[in-house]
Write a protein that binds this DNA or RNA. Structure first.
Length: 318
DNA sequence: AAGTAGACCAACCGCGCTCGG
DNA sequence: CCCGAGCGCGGTTGGTCTACT
């Protein structure tokens, strides 16, 4: 097919942005919204490609960006979400208010990854390096299940994204046929990834950031349900899709219901590498490292709590 | 004070996906 | 169905800053 370059290389500036350029971009977007990124630079009088403008805006100029040091809470959130989602920075970013995926990615690569490595934890799999010892004692089953859960969540994220897009389409069609009398705060709003001009449509949408199609918070309650944690307002459609995901990853729903993801992950019977006996046993772990293990005793529980306390309510999704 | 190495992070690059003609 | 435009994402690069010798 042959991809055309994102911009004409001729005469377009690259490299660090100047305050003047920032001001131009900011002023233009505040007045008009970004519209088409490709045409924005010309309209805004910038000698940049649209891609560069988009990046500058989303990673730096957006008004709802929090800059500066990451809090301990944020660090924990990143580690936990990374354990579940892998390098899906945009998905992780949806759960860290006011942080960009780029910033999280940088922070992970420069700080958190090294810290985990130092502690003997593989930053990719989040498994302790002595896991091979565990696997010989029948714990590989749980680890395999953990791996399945990660796959499951990943597959579900993608499926939900598809669902969201389909629903958005339906919603648009519905609006064309029936004039809406009240704003729809459900799927359509969440599914929107594009910016609208501040003076268009819903007034309280002003300068809202573009976000991923589906937020993590919308997904986890579904997982929570499978752990036997009561979740309100579930409907049959959601249930059906969950069973389908379970089927896809070959993971019996009954097993998940009975055993409970959290207990599997936490290793109630001393499974996994975070237990004290393991930490203090086969692998030399110093006091500060052990303290980290203690802090993360409820590693996966906290993921669920984190997501459960999310501002967005999954029950309004459908 | 000068040189060097490592850390940090903004920005770039290229790929994959979606959508519309 | 095909193709190209547009966009978002994740990986990587390279310039700047800081600490150390």
């Amino acid at each position: 097919m042959g991809r055309s370059p994102c911009c004409d290389k001729n005469g377009l500036k690259k490299g660090p942005w100047t305050p003047e350029e920032d001001q131009k971009l900011l002023a233009y977007i505040e007045e008009h919204g970004h519209g088409s990124w490709r045409s924005l630079p010309q309209k805004a009088g910038l000698q940049r490609c649209g891609k560069s403008c988009r990046l500058r805006w989303t990673n730096y100029l957006r008004p709802d960006i929090k800059r500066g040091k990451f809090t301990v809470q944020e660090e924990q959130t990143i580690i936990q979400l990374h354990a579940l989602l892998g390098n899906r920075w945009s998905a992780i970013a949806t759960h860290l208010a006011k942080r960009t995926d780029n910033e999280i990615k940088n922070y992970w690569n420069t700080h958190l990854k090294k810290r985990l490595v130092k502690m003997g934890i593989d930053p990719v799999t989040h498994k302790h390096k002595n896991e091979t010892l565990l696997s010989s004692t029948g714990q590989s089953k749980n680890l395999a299940t953990l791996s399945h859960m990660a796959q499951w969540e990943s597959a579900r994220l993608e499926a939900e994204a598809r669902l969201a897009r389909e629903s958005k389409l339906l919603h648009i069609q519905h609006h064309q046929n029936n004039k809406p009398t009240a704003p729809n705060h459900c799927l359509t709003q969440k599914a929107s990834t594009s910016w609208s001009k501040p003076n268009e449509g819903n007034g309280d949408q002003q300068l809202e950031s573009p976000t991923s199609t589906v937020t993590f918070s919308e997904n986890l309650p579904l997982m929570i349900m499978h752990l036997g944690i009561p979740t309100e307002n579930r409907n049959s459609r959601v249930k059906d899709s969950e069973h389908e995901w379970m089927r896809q990853i070959n993971c019996p729903t009954e097993v998940m219901m009975q055993e409970g993801f959290t207990s599997l992950l936490l290793g109630d019977s001393g499974d996994l590498s975070l237990s004290k006996s393991t930490a203090a046993g086969a692998v030399e772990v110093n006091e500060s490292e052990y303290s980290y293990y203690e802090d993360n005793k409820n590693y996966w529980n906290s993921i669920l709590n984190l997501v459960d306390s999310s501002p967005s309510d999954s029950s309004t999704m459908f």
